[in-house]
Design a protein around this nucleic acid. Sequence first.
DNA 1: TCCATCATGTAACCAGTTACATGATTTC
DNA 2: GAAATCATGTAACTGGTTACATGATGGA
Lengths: 176, 176
Amino acid sequence: VSLRHAALGLLAQHPGSGYDLLKRFQESMANVWPATQSQLYGELGKLADAGLIKVSDLGPRGRKEYAITDAGRAELRRWMTSPQDDPPFRSAPLLRVFLLGELSPAEALEHLRAIRRFSEREHARYEQMRDSREWSEDHRDFFGRAALESGLRFTKARADWASWVIQQLERRLNGS
Amino acid sequence: VSLRHAALGLLAQHPGSGYDLLKRFQESMANVWPATQSQLYGELGKLADAGLIKVSDLGPRGRKEYAITDAGRAELRRWMTSPQDDPPFRSAPLLRVFLLGELSPAEALEHLRAIRRFSEREHARYEQMRDSREWSEDHRDFFGRAALESGLRFTKARADWASWVIQQLERRLNGS
DNA sequence: TCCATCATGTAACCAGTTACATGATTTC
DNA sequence: GAAATCATGTAACTGGTTACATGATGGA
């Protein structure tokens, strides 16, 4: 259960329609929790049924604006303070590294170089996100910035890691 | 589709029964791709139906040993070289950080300290894994070691990141 | 003979993806 | 009047989780 909490979190920040939330997912949240349109509408229905959010306004084209309820805030707090029941960590890219021995050394090397290139590009993308806007003293902004910092540091760490593996592998191939 | 490839990868390294694979998942692979018993048996059935693996031996208690087929190796290679269709990155812990503004500053701070403690423990766990066995010159071992290195570096990066956020947050709270 | 371990499977459920489907309003 | 955008929903399918269910074999 977790798109649930992403949606609840956005509505806690401020009310909006499914359509609004979808945009907010695509902008700020895409890097930590991407969501598709159909899933979001479905979840909003369930959240409303459960009384965690309610329709706070109606607009043209059947627009329904939702707002979080007290029960919703309580549920959000509960989730925020229960990291122990997050889903287990899974990483297809790491799984691939684990099995890289099934490819030829040349292919493995090329794969690792691709990881390095990709990580460097991602790192640059985060740098641009950081530099292309002002970061206010606002509380919300602060944690958005903190999440971004995590992106910066992880992409950097991954690029460095790839360099390390490449170097080790090259040493092995050219005989000690 | 990805437990599929984890299982295929293990069988590429060498044949085994569902029960064997389950143990190998729990040992070496748990950190990159955990799997449950029921899912694994189901997947082995599907892989066999698809002709990617085949029963290579029968033992007591209905034991079925599976081995990878040529078609299976081909599929594994295809997946190994197609990182572009990996599932999108999702992280509940990062989502939580993103929404940390919904908690009080004191609670947020405590949460970040918990992340730091946890990351340090995980880092120590990986160090122990590294030091508690010999790493041979073997090709397979090499990539297992590379995946472990990634665990070491990421847990370190996360602990450092948490320290950074904590420091920033403390500065904000004590007035500039 | 009892216990641990070996060994396999099924069913109900939840989360997420892709594709399909429809229509109203605003802007040029 | 046409096109972009606003706006919501459904259906079929895949992957993963928890819980249930059963039984054979080997060693003390």
